[in-house]
Every structure is written in structure tokens, then in C-alpha cells.
Amino acid sequence: MIIYIAALVVAVVITTALIAVFSKKLLSSIIAMGLVSLGVSGLFFFLQAPDVAITEAAIGAGLSTAIFVIALKKVKKGESEDEE
């Protein structure tokens, strides 16, 4: 039974990764990358690896996305200053 849920999660993860490819805005692409990490951490839980699931949820979905957004904000600030 649980394998069907895992297949569903795999489908969602692949769809989210495709969104990360084809979205025009960089911010939505970064958020999609965080969602991919979150889905992969759920898959780790189905694969009987709770250690890896906790680590991926704390780092891949949390800190990594935050660092991306901070870097994007730094770059966006420079861009807007140039335009003004």
C-alpha cells in the first residue's frame, strides 16, 4: 500500500522539478527546488532512513532555500539600484 503513496510522491517531485526548469521567474524556481527537497525527504522516510529524512528536511528544504533567497535578494538590490 505504501508503495503507491511513494509513487504518488515521486510523481509530485518530478512535476515540481519540471516547474523549476520551466518557470521564468527565479524566485519560483528556487521555491520549487525547496519543494523537491521536501518531497525527497518524504521519500527517504518511506525508504526507512529517518536520519537522512530529518537532515534533508532541516537542510535541503529549510536552510538551503533560505540561503538562495538571501542571495537573490542581494542581487535584486543591486539590479534596482542600477535601474534607478
Binding site: 536520519d51 530529518i54 537532515t55 532541516a58 537542510i59 529549510g62 536552510l63 533560505a66
Partner: peptide, 8 residues
Amino acid sequence: PGGAVIAS
């Protein structure tokens, strides 16, 4: 993971 939680 503990260190990552503290950093967040």
C-alpha cells in the same frame, strides 16, 4: 541535523 536546526 542538530546544528542545522540551531542555524535556522
